[in-house]
Lab assay of single mutants.
Amino acid sequence: MAEQVALSRTQVCGILREELFQGDAFHQSDTHIFIIMGASGDLAKKKIYPTIWWLFRDGLLPENTFIVGYARSRLTVADIRKQSEPFFKATPEEKLKLEDFFARNSYVAGQYDDAASYQRLNSHMNALHLGSQANRLFYLALPPTVYEAVTKNIHESCMSQIGWNRIIVEKPFGRDLQSSDRLSNHISSLFREDQIYRIDHYLGKEMVQNLMVLRFANRIFGPIWNRDNIACVILTFKEPFGTEGRGGYFDEFGIIRDVMQNHLLQMLCLVAMEKPASTNSDDVRDEKVKVLKCISEVQANNVVLGQYVGNPDGEGEATKGYLDDPTVPRGSTTATFAAVVLYVENERWDGVPFILRCGKALNERKAEVRLQFHDVAGDIFHQQCKRNELVIRVQPNEAVYTKMMTKKPGMFFNPEESELDLTYGNRYKNVKLPDAYERLILDVFCGSQMHFVRSDELREAWRIFTPLLHQIELEKPKPIPYIYGSRGPTEADELMKRVGFQYEGTYKWVNP
């Protein structure tokens, strides 16, 4: 592979701008107003304001973009700056750019259920340069409990009458099928589907988006991507930290609602779906819905739930269990780990287990898709061969690698495990991989909904998990304890083995 010439960040961002501006969906010269509902909250200060700053800094926003914060707290732009700027990672050389960014910011205080507050917000936006005809993007960085009041008031008082209007809704989209349907029906009564952007930030990850290209742009994968060759698929999300004093919020939802029903299920769809007619948003989402419709409700015998306990040999936070978090209700049975087996009941995947695993306070930070292939028929190497695996590593250190057998150097035919490896950090030294939120917010500006969740996708996802969630809430089974920093409950490994996964433990990928 030829040595790549190092590029400056300015040059890299210039390439990104060229890609972005050559499309006809990006209205570079139009006025846009980006409204952050819930501007005083954690999500706004840690993710949304920093993301908008990065896009502005790199010249990736339309030229005439204004940012308006809205929340109940009586704040000023200076207050917003004070709480969000520490997350910007701005350099001293960017000081003038930073001043320009905050000059485009404003803030309006108001209630979430008060019509007069929204009329005041609308008047404020109209007073901005060309504000009355601007395109408006409303980001709901809010708890779902206020979605209905907020969307109703936005629709009645704050819509642009000339430009387009788009609304970005953060997960969780309800707690179960019934609450999700209620919320979807409410929002759909106010906005068209092409105006609604239900954001799952995992769909903005580079390697998640790469799944489609790997599958449908490489001839070698087509013939082997089926039940005849693939023994099982494992989708993993692991965090090495616990709730760390923020367990009160987590306890309301648990690990299945927080990660599995959305992030992991979306990745499953991209692995299992048929080739779409095109890369058009609805063509892709149509195929994802077909996959979900082929999955039956989760069966309790295919589920393992766990909850982390303190590690007596650990240090600091590792010595504390979930129930030691003062914000967690006493005696909570909320799971911090889950392993679930699903089956896609169609011709391509009949009988292939899709194993979804996620948890907190585990032994490493990792998100990946792992396809394990069947054993080689007619073994001539005296059971020395391990199964081939194709691994798409989402985070950290984005990579695609194939675990395969090669001859060990020497005189004899002794096979050993090795890999074919594409590590993004080595291959793409001159490429700026956008943060997931950067990519998705740019998608909203461009009107691309491919990486957002459609209402029928959402409904099918909740259909699969709601009976299990209701059973857990009714019966309150005690989750299996696992030690902070471990791989999780051993019962999860036993479940995976029972459905056909072979864990060798003899080879570990190392970032080159």
Rank of each mutant, 00 (worst) to 15 (best):
E63R: 09
L137Q: 06
G248D: 04
R246N: 01
L142N: 03
L60I: 10
T151W: 13
L61R: 00
A141N: 00
P240E: 09
S179Q: 05
Q161A: 11
V169F: 04
G163S: 09
S73H: 11
A103Y: 10
Y147C: 04
E99F: 09
F241Y: 14
Y70M: 08
Q119Y: 13
N210V: 04
R192A: 10
K46Q: 06
I48Q: 01
F237Q: 06
W54G: 10
W225N: 01
Q11G: 14
L96V: 15
D42K: 03
D194P: 05
R9G: 02
S106L: 07
G248I: 03
R72V: 02
K47L: 02
P172W: 00
D228S: 06
P144Q: 02
N185K: 11
K95H: 09
D251G: 08
S106Q: 14
L16V: 10
D79Y: 06
I167N: 08
A78Q: 09
D194H: 14
E170A: 01
G248P: 04
L177D: 15
W164R: 10
A39H: 08
Q195A: 15
S179K: 04
I199Y: 04
T236H: 04
S188N: 11
I162T: 10
E85P: 02
S160R: 08
S106G: 09
K82Y: 05
D24V: 14
Y49C: 02
I199T: 09
T243G: 13
L16Y: 10
L211W: 07
H124W: 09
G14F: 14
G131I: 10
R17N: 15
E19C: 10
I199F: 10
A115V: 14
H129I: 09
P172N: 00
L98C: 06
A103H: 13
E94S: 03
Q195E: 15
R57L: 14
N126A: 15
A127H: 15
A44G: 05
L20C: 04
Y147Q: 03
M207L: 09
W54S: 05
K82G: 14
G222W: 14
I256H: 06
M37V: 12
P86S: 10
R57S: 07
V208E: 01
G69D: 03
F56H: 04
T65L: 05
R246H: 02
G174W: 15
S8M: 05
P143L: 05
L16I: 15
L60A: 06
N229I: 06
